[in-house]
């Protein structure tokens, strides 16, 4: 018996799937932004000469990089809302799924971003800091005005590649029954008994988005890499 594909449930489900895609994109965008900001702070702590800061950052990064993302998401789904709810007096039953997913992603990705950013900072020649200091800039000024702008320019391709990986990883929020793109596709397929079609369709969409995005990054990289 050959499986007979039936794609008819997809067109009608498109608006629902689009809503899911919006959730995936929102989670990706905020995790990239928060991840880069927090990751930059972590990277600077890690490179700091103040030992406790450097230890904290190293511990944070090693911890999050040694735990599967699904686990972090489940914690943030099951445990953290309890605490936060009590702390800020949020009424029970408030839907915190999106917020907890976003928090989980941001904190998790910051660990990865901080390693990329640390390498970026270290790729800037030491003489640049010496020159900035010799002109009377404080450590903070030389970081902000001289080192980080150069570091980020070197890092853009890596940061974007990490964002693409992050976008794929957003599908893991299905563990909290959140209807992101993957979750939405799963629900539709389940409802109509057409799981195979929907999952193939979702896979194709992820592939098209991620593949074209990484091609774009490649072209950017070519354009901006000094000859």
């Amino acid at each position: 018996m050959i499986y007979e594909f039936d794609w008819s449930s997809i067109p009608g489900a498109l608006p629902f799937l689009w809503d899911g895609m919006k959730i995936s994109l929102v989670i990706t965008a905020q995790a990239v932004v928060v991840g880069i900001v927090w990751g930059t702070i972590l990277a600077m702590m890690r490179l700091s000469s103040i030992k406790p800061l450097s230890w904290f950052a190293a511990g944070y990064v090693n911890l999050f990089r040694a735990i599967p993302l699904v686990m972090v998401l489940l914690w943030f789904f099951l445990i953290v809302p309890e605490f936060v709810g009590q702390l800020f007096n949020i009424p029970k039953g408030t839907d915190l799924r999106l917020s907890s997913a976003m928090a989980g992603f941001a904190l998790f990705e910051a660990a990865y971003y901080s390693e990329i950013i640390r390498a970026g900072i270290q790729s800037v020649p030491k003489g640049q800091i010496a020159a900035a200091s010799a002109l009377g800039m404080t450590y903070g000024q030389s970081m902000r005005l001289v080192v980080l702008p150069q570091a980020f320019r070197n890092m853009v391709p890596l940061l974007l590649t990490q964002a693409i990986i992050l976008f794929q990883d957003t599908s893991l929020v299905y563990v909290s029954a959140l209807a992101d793109f993957f979750g939405a596709a799963y629900k539709v397929g389940d409802r109509d008994g057409r799981l195979v079609e929907l999952l193939l369709f979702a896979g194709a969409v992820y592939f098209v988005i991620c593949f074209s995005a990484s091609q774009l990054v490649k072209r950017l990289q070519k354009k901006y890499t000094p000859a």
């Binding site: 003489g127 640049q128 010496a130 020159a131 010799a134 002109l135 800039m137 001289v146 150069q150 320019r153």
Partner: peptide, 21 residues
């Protein structure tokens, strides 16, 4: 305050160290 002192002492390096960006 070393930054303050360095602001008054000019320095030129072997590898120029202009800010490339």
């Amino acid at each position: 305050n070393l930054s303050k002192l360095r602001a008054r002492v000019g320095m030129v390096f072997q590898n120029f160290e202009l800010f490339p960006h």
